[in-house]
Amino acid sequence: MTAKPASSLDIGMPATESKTSPQAIIDTAERLFGDHGVLGVSIRQIGQEAKMANNSAINYHFGDRAGLVRAIWAHRLPVLDQMRTVLLQDLEQQGMTQDRHGVLRALMLPTYLYVDEDGVHRYAAFFRSVMRWREGRPLRAQEMHASPASERALGLVQALAPDLPHQLMIERLVYASGVFHDMIIDRDHAIAEDHEVAPEDAFLHEAIDMMAAMIFRPAP
């Protein structure tokens, strides 16, 4: 998958990648995990879809299912974090680090911008599936070192609601980001089926505002 900018929202994208065996496995696993869930597809199926002649290629390169998920993150997160760094720098230069919508936009927009060659948000679908997997959240926590800009953005979110307990804030972020990813996936399906969808800017504004309403409501 190559990260492509979504219309006027371009903040840069990486060069096109060559398809080595590990890269073909990563792209295929990301797509299948997103479409069917992390436990909804077998390692053998991934190998077959990736056109691996050797049935042990995935085990050789990645070990197990969790290792494959980690490999996808290791490949994607640096690019996403680069995008997020640019957004955070813009936010700081504009003096808008106290703006809830702006901070959440900096946190979430890279996921929206990261699309495949067909303009489909494969990574968003993958991420949503992983976070629904029992092992997904602990694995993501272990990979936060690869996302320093995400940690910066999360710190800004927490600073905007200092009265919320940290764990409650994290829970709200998890579920609010789930809604955000679901909205992206539903919009992709609607476009694929030639249904009318909201303009991109309006869609993103609504999605971020919904997240803000979930996250920043008063503590019980």
Score class of each variant (00 low, 15 high):
Phe127Ile: 13
Ser21Met: 15
Pro22Gln: 10
Arg137His: 01
Val103Phe: 08
Val120Phe: 05
Pro14Gln: 13
Glu143Gln: 10
Met96Gln: 15
Gly155Glu: 06
Arg65His: 10
Gly63Phe: 12
Asp182Gln: 00
Leu77Asn: 08
Gly155Pro: 07
Asp188Pro: 08
Ala71Pro: 10
Phe62Gln: 09
Gly95Lys: 07
Arg76Pro: 03
Arg84Asp: 11
Tyr123Val: 07
Ile184Trp: 00
Arg65Asp: 15
Phe33Ala: 09
Leu139Thr: 10
Arg100Ile: 14
Val179Asp: 01
Arg105Cys: 09
Asp64Tyr: 13
Ile184Arg: 00
Phe127Asn: 02
Ala6Leu: 11
Asp10Val: 11
Met13Lys: 03
Arg100Asn: 10
Gln48His: 12
Ile58Asp: 15
Thr85Ala: 12
Ala50Gln: 12
Ile43Phe: 06
Arg31Met: 14
Pro199Gln: 04
Gly12Thr: 04
Arg132Leu: 08
Gly47Pro: 09
Leu113Pro: 03
His75Met: 07
Asn55Glu: 15
Ala192Trp: 01
Met1Ala: 13
Tyr123Pro: 03
Met83Asn: 07
Asp116Thr: 14
His189Met: 09
Gln158Lys: 02
Ala198Gly: 10
Glu206Gln: 05
Thr2Leu: 09
Phe203His: 11
Arg31Asp: 15
Tyr112Val: 09
Met210Pro: 00
Pro78Phe: 11
Gly63Ile: 14
His189Asn: 08
Lys4Phe: 11
Phe33Arg: 03
Met211Leu: 03
Glu193Arg: 04
Tyr112Ser: 03
Phe127Arg: 01
Gly34Asp: 11
Pro162Arg: 06
Gln23Val: 15
Arg140Gly: 04
Thr16Trp: 00
Thr85Val: 12
Gly136Lys: 03
His61Leu: 11
Ala190Asn: 04
His101Ser: 08
Leu88Met: 08
Val174Leu: 01
Gln45Phe: 07
His145Ile: 14
Asp209Ser: 09
Pro22Lys: 09
Val69Asp: 14
Asp182Tyr: 00
Ile170Asn: 04
Ala125Tyr: 10
Gln167His: 07
Gln98Trp: 15
Pro5Leu: 04
Pro165Met: 05
Ala219Thr: 13
Leu109Met: 13
Ala153Arg: 05
Ser129Asn: 03
Met83Arg: 05
Ile208Ala: 02
Arg70Leu: 11
Asp194Ile: 11
Ile25Asn: 05
Asp35Ser: 11
Tyr175Ser: 01
Lys4Leu: 10
Arg137Pro: 01
